[in-house]
């Protein structure tokens, strides 16, 4: 059972969250090449060790957060809001 610290709600059990994929990939610009979009949609690294992931506090405050986690030891190094500049309206939620 992973214990994940939601920046808004504190430490919570893994089963309040759902995994949201690789947070290291950047969504290409609209005018990026087909190849960039192909890699964005389909290709992912599978690192053994520290990794940045999206998690969704789906059974909690519904915030999307970025979790830095070791995929081997499952150690969580840090958690942060998915976006540093969330509008205030979201934070209050």
């Amino acid at each position: 059972m992973l214990r994940i610290e939601c920046p808004w709600c504190g430490v919570r059990n893994e089963d309040e969250f759902s995994y949201g994929g690789d947070a290291t990939v950047e969504r290409p610009a609209d005018d990026a090449s087909q190849d960039d979009w192909y890699h964005y949609a389909y290709t992912r690294d599978n690192p053994a060790g520290p990794h940045r992931e999206y998690w969704h506090h789906v059974n909690g405050c519904r915030a999307w957060i970025v979790v830095e986690r070791d995929t081997v030891t499952h150690e969580v190094f840090s958690t942060a809001p998915a976006s540093p500049n969330l509008p205030a309206g979201n934070r209050e939620g």
Binding site: S18, G20, A23, R27, Y54, H56, V58, R62, A63, W64, P81, A82, S83, N85, L86, P87, G89, N90, G93
Partner: peptide, 18 residues
């Protein structure tokens, strides 16, 4: 709903929408 939350919070936080 989760899909919308993801895009709003991870890609387009600048959009003023709730």
């Amino acid at each position: 709903l989760a899909h919308m939350e993801q895009y709003h919070q991870t890609e387009w936080p600048d959009l003023d929408v709730v």
